[in-house]
């Protein structure tokens, strides 16, 4: 167990973080390289004011017509994304590890709150899964990869929750939790989870076009 633990929290964790960070940078740099090479005109239309105007509307629940049209989805998706990012960063156990490894002392969530947030993430994943299976317009454009990325996202939270509660085979689930977290990190730059990286840019560009050229709202 020690060897396995040392491996998944040592070299594997390093590898996962390096792939995540370097991969993300690579994807972003590659995108900017492509813009430079072929669509340099994009820069002439980019505007900070309109980019942020657009981003601000879309990251605010119910601030856009489409968010208003889908109240349940809006609540779920905002809760999901907030919990998805906040929970792993500020989880007490993770904060301890941040501190032990890097001497970074972060504020930590109370475990009870983190527990609820984890359930929110898992519940949201189930919601998204059901949505994919049930709604024809979503089903129609769903491919196997959509289920895979959903599973990749849900896995660290499910395993983490089981491990934290120590229901069955604690050590196994801890190892699974760590590995699934690492899989998710690695998957971010190289799957459509990369919307985490790209969506601010696509949003900003559309916001700039609508604000600067079209004089219209894009929300």
């Amino acid at each position: 167990m020690h060897d396995l633990y040392n491996f998944v929290t040592g070299p594997l964790a390093w590898a996962a973080f390096i792939v995540f960070i370097a991969g993300s940078l690579y994807r972003l740099i590659n995108m900017l390289y492509l813009v430079n090479k072929k669509e340099k005109f994009i820069y002439t239309y980019m505007s900070f004011k309109y980019s942020f105007r657009s981003i601000f509307h879309w990251i605010t629940p119910f601030a856009t017509v489409n968010w208003q049209r889908h109240p349940v989805l809006t609540i779920v998706t905002f809760a999901f994304h907030i919990c998805l990012i906040i929970t792993p960063v500020f989880l007490l156990s993770h904060a301890i590890l941040w501190d032990e490894s890097w001497n970074i002392s972060l504020w930590a969530l109370p475990d009870g709150v983190a527990d609820i947030m984890t359930l929110v993430v898992v519940g949201s994943c189930i919601f998204f899964l059901v949505r994919r299976l049930v709604l024809p317009e979503v089903q129609y454009v769903t491919s196997a990869s959509d289920y895979v990325i959903l599973a990749i996202v849900a896995a660290p939270f499910i395993t983490g929750f089981i491990a934290y509660n120590q229901w069955i085979n604690y050590q196994l689930f801890m190892i699974l939790h760590i590995i699934s977290g690492e899989i998710m990190l690695v998957a971010i730059p190289f799957t459509r989870l990369s919307h985490m990286l790209f969506s601010p840019f696509t949003r900003a560009y559309m916001g700039s076009e609508f604000g600067g050229v079209r004089n219209a709202k894009d929300w």
Binding site: M31, H70, E137, R192, H195, T202
Partner: peptide, 26 residues
């Protein structure tokens, strides 16, 4: 003839279907 836009759009789309109700054909 295409570059960052097409690539980024296609790879960023999360297949959520939220654009559907925008379309009068749909």
């Amino acid at each position: 003839e295409t570059g960052a836009r097409l690539k980024t759009y296609v790879e960023t789309c999360i297949h959520c279907g939220l654009c559907s109700e925008a379309c009068h054909y749909y």
